[in-house]
Amino acid sequence: MTSPHRSAARIQIGTTLRRLREDAKLPRDLACEALGCTITKIGNIENARSGVKHAELEKLLTLYGADEPTRDDLLALNSEAHRRRPKSKIGGQIAPWLRRILDVEAIAVEAIFSSPDLIPAVLQTPDYARALMANVGLAGEVLEKNLELRLGRRVLLTEREVPLRLWAVIAEPVLWAGIGGPQVMREQIAHLLAMTELDNVNLQVMPRGAGVHPLIGTTLTLFRLPGDLPSLISVDTPFGDHFADSPDQVERTSRWFDFTRAKALGLEESRELLARVMEDIR
Rank of each mutant, 00 (worst) to 15 (best):
P120N: 01
P120D: 01
A121Y: 00
A121N: 06
V122Q: 06
V122N: 00
L123R: 01
Q124Y: 01
Q124L: 00
Q124W: 05
Q124D: 02
P126C: 03
Y128L: 02
Y128Q: 01
Y128G: 03
Y128N: 03
A129D: 07
R130H: 03
R130E: 06
R130G: 01
R130K: 09
A131G: 07
A131V: 02
A131K: 04
M133H: 02
M133C: 03
A134H: 02
A134Y: 00
A134S: 09
N135V: 00
N135H: 04
N135A: 13
N135Q: 10
N135S: 14
N135F: 05
G137Y: 13
G137N: 06
L138K: 05
L138P: 06
E141C: 00
E141R: 14
E141T: 13
V142M: 12
L143Q: 10
E144H: 02
E144Q: 15
N146M: 11
L147M: 12
L147H: 08
E148W: 00
E148Y: 01
E148P: 00
E148G: 14
L149S: 06
L149F: 00
L151S: 07
L151V: 07
L151T: 12
G152T: 08
G152L: 05
R154V: 03
R154G: 09
R154C: 12
V155F: 08
L156W: 15
L157R: 12
L157S: 08
T158S: 15
T158E: 15
R160N: 14
E161L: 14
E161P: 07
E161C: 01
V162H: 13
V162P: 04
P163F: 15
P163K: 11
P163E: 15
L164P: 11
L164C: 14
L164S: 09
R165L: 12
L166G: 08
W167S: 15
A168R: 04
A168W: 06
V169Q: 11
V169T: 12
V169Y: 12
A171P: 02
A171C: 14
A171S: 15
A171M: 07
E172I: 08
P173L: 06
P173C: 09
V174T: 14
V174P: 09
V174I: 08
L175V: 07
L175G: 11
L175S: 09
L175E: 10
W176Q: 13
W176M: 14
W176F: 15
W176E: 13
A177E: 12
I179P: 03
G180P: 02
G180M: 08
G181V: 11
P182S: 08
P182R: 14
P182D: 07
Q183F: 00
Q183C: 01
V184W: 04
V184T: 15
M185S: 11
R186C: 05
R186A: 05
E187Q: 14
E187T: 11
Q188E: 11
I189P: 03
I189A: 05
A190H: 13
L192H: 04
L192D: 04
L192M: 13
L193G: 15
A194Y: 09
T196H: 05
E197I: 01
E197L: 06
